[in-house]
């Protein structure tokens, strides 16, 4: 924050527009670069929340999944406040069971062991 920003705040004037331009650009470029529409991102956000919710109780409304970009690298950043852990209520899946669960996982395990 610069001196001008503080004075603008004190006088309740609109902040200088360059910072708004910077923030808007960073957001739009993160979407452009990843080629993800807002709808797709929202769908992904819901699915990520569902998976996480199997392990810990999270605040579904507060959870934010966003794209951030720096130095032409785009990162998916999830900020999911945990209400409480579901300790003991969820069982660890045994590796042998896991292979039965999905053939795809089994395949990737095979590849890794080679």
């Amino acid at each position: 924050m610069t001196l001008r920003d503080i004075i603008n705040k004190l006088l309740r004037r609109q902040p200088a527009s360059a910072s708004t331009a910077r923030e808007r650009l960073q957001l739009v470029l993160a979407h452009d670069r990843s080629d993800l529409s807002t709808e797709l991102l929202d769908q992904m956000r819901r699915e990520i929340l569902e998976v996480v919710a199997k392990y810990v109780e999270i605040d579904m409304d507060e959870g934010a999944v966003s794209l951030e970009t720096e130095d032409r690298m785009t990162a998916l950043v999830a900020n999911l406040p945990i209400k409480r852990t579901l300790n003991g209520q969820i069982k660890l899946i045994e590796p042998s069971q896991q292979q039965d669960v999905s053939p795809q996982t089994a395949e990737s395990i095979d590849k890794n062991s080679q």
């Binding site: 610069t2 001008r4 200088a16 527009s17 360059a18 910072s19 331009a21 910077r22 650009l25 960073q26 470029l29 130095d71 032409r72």
Partner: peptide
Amino acid sequence: MMANQEMLSIDDVTDILA
């Protein structure tokens, strides 16, 4: 305009576009 922070600065643009 740059001095008044009403225009993206040179650093803003070079950082964003890398």
